[in-house]
Design a protein around this nucleic acid. Structure first.
Lengths: 338, 338
DNA sequence: GCCCATCGTCGAAGCGCTTCGACGAAATTT
DNA sequence: AAATTTCGTCGAAGCGCTTCGACGATGGGC
């Protein structure tokens, strides 16, 4: 492995000059630069990351703390991770992958030992124990999610409250008045994963504002969970004409169930789903949906990290506006049902 | 951030002594050790990763190159990643996440700049361009998969050939003689992802050995893909009594299709699936399946890396034996069908 | 009782890079 | 024409750690 000294010798300059060619922090004449770059290319020189980190106190690595349990939302999480890695690379950074189950210790380890310049965390809970730990680090962090006390920490997420309101507004605009919410699994609520709460709150507020009759229920995974969720919804409010489904995994069994029980979508029941676009379009009925913009959120998180590292100002809470895409699962309610 | 010098002063010893306490590479008296450890704890000292890497030429980081495209097998990939990260942590290593689409450049970057001690690659293609690049690196690497020319590189994977044989043997043992293979999507074959080939080869060999009549077909994603795949299989070989499904995504639509066309599982058609356990058990019929042991494979990959780093011997090709778990989707063929 | 190995510790060198101050030369200002 | 600034480069210090050789103090073997 050639070092910067080897390059310097080959180019007939001092090591510091090579460094300045690399970093561009001081003016270097065009010919010197050319000679240095030629030497770099010829020797195949790559600066030693550790040495660089030691000398500059910058690692060009960011930590991504992801919930790597094999959980409900695996594909969505993957989309976030992909977006983060891709965006980080576009800023010449790499990504160190941490699991959530190391808890607070993982963060502290990588931060204190200066392995990373910044952290991005996913899957935040309402009173996430990692938040106070984060505040003590010298590295900045960005959250994908919106825990209770996030003052002073940058947060990025879809505006799930607005998403719920948009879903209801869309259905109300089609004349629906009796609407059920198929929520995430009880486990998600129990963990107080913040998006579930925010969605539910927005849903309840909007149903009051719009004068709707609504019922909400979490939904256990699997066909059986869907069956009992639907049973509960129907029991609590008869004559449902529309469903909002905030549970990716439930979509498929739900459509199966509706089909099996002779309720046609959208003729008898309209549906708005909150899920990634590709899930919405992979169903037997193309679902009108509000996308979970994992790519945008992940990219934005990285951009925010970079601003923070540059010492630029950031908006501490960025909630992305939901976009509802109309497909084939909603229909103007027929007069008979009004 | 306290340094090793601060610790040394606080404990009244030299920095090298602190280092030896940390590494255990030289004997240190119990009392000195205790004093040093107390100082470390009190100051909250964490060795600077860059400095350490520079001095020791070890980073305690391994690269994981994962196909982060949002692909068919997302949950499986996630399981691999989880296993790798967890196992790496148990050896006190961290994981740097690279995407496959950086191609060969990503590997070279992290290797040449000494960011990682070793690499683990997933989703290998038959003539993967990264293999020759890997050979030039000073860091060892372990592949999850089995490309064509892997001499001198450690490979770990499920023995897909044996899995195919096991599936057919199981069905043959139940009296089935006319069996179809629902394969991965054509895209997977086109990429020459090695497990698809190995499975297919094993399947064809076993069907000869067992004297079976078989047909095979790739299967496009979605209900439509499944429909046309089944149509092709039925057209090419009438009287199919069993299916081997090596396509996780197809399982659900396939069961729907069979149900819709009045072919009962397992009464009319038996099924063996190759998929993660939780997928097999999440279907309307609990499927007899051969597990994709992502956890074991990931863990083994990390163990192999560690052996390599220690300079210990490794087996260069480790193909895990498939385990077929009987559930409810296979049945002894009825006399009328024989 | 002497020699040699082992134990426990220290000091110093060095890993490969960045960055600061310095300095001659060239360009600009006065 | 002198004074000042800017440009382009160099040398050296230092980032925080590991590791090697050295060295006094013990302890065993004979």
């Amino acid at each position: 492995m050639p070092t910067i000294n080897d390059v310097a010798k080959a180019a007939g300059v001092s090591p510091s000059t090579v460094s300045y060619v690399l970093s561009g922090r001081r003016p270097i004449s065009a010919e010197t630069r050319a000679r240095v770059q030629a030497a770099i290319a010829e020797l195949g020189f790559h600066p030693h990351a550790g040495a660089r980190a030691l000398a500059s106190s910058k690692t060009n690595v960011i930590a991504l703390v992801a919930p790597l349990r094999v959980d409900v939302n695996v594909p969505v999480i993957m989309q976030f991770a992909t977006a983060v890695v891709t965006a980080a690379r576009s800023y010449n950074h790499d990504v160190l992958l941490l699991t959530k189950d190391e808890g607070t210790a993982g963060l502290e380890r990588v931060a204190h030992s200066t392995m990373v310049d910044a952290l991005i965390l996913m899957d935040l809970e309402r009173d996430d124990l990692r938040i106070p730990a984060l505040r003590k680090l010298k590295q900045p962090s960005v959250l994908i999610g919106l825990p209770a006390d996030h003052t002073g920490i940058a947060c990025v997420d879809l505006d799930f409250g607005a998403a719920a309101r948009a879903a209801l507004a869309h259905l109300a605009g089609h004349g629906h008045r009796r609407i059920g919410l198929v929520g995430p699994s009880p486990a998600v609520y129990k963990r107080q994963t913040t998006y579930a709460d925010r969605f539910l709150t927005g849903f309840l507020e909007a149903s009051v504002d719009l004068g709707l009759q609504t019922v909400t229920h979490p939904c256990e995974p699997g066909a059986e969970g869907v069956r009992s969720c639907m049973a509960d919804l129907d029991a609590e409010l008869s004559g449902l004409t529309a469903l909002v489904v905030h549970n990716e995994e439930a979509l498929r069994p739900l459509l199966d169930l509706l089909h099996a029980t002779g309720r046609r979508v959208p003729e008898d029941v309209s549906i708005v789903a909150i899920c990634p676009r590709d899930v919405a379009t992979a169903m037997p009925v193309n679902l009108t949906s509000i996308d979970i913009p994992a790519h945008d959120v992940g990219t934005l998180a990285v951009e925010t990290v970079m601003r923070l590292l540059d010492g630029r100002r950031v908006e501490y809470t960025r909630l992305l506006e939901p976009r509802l895409v109309e497909r084939d699962s909603c229909r103007e309610i027929s007069a008979s049902h009004r």
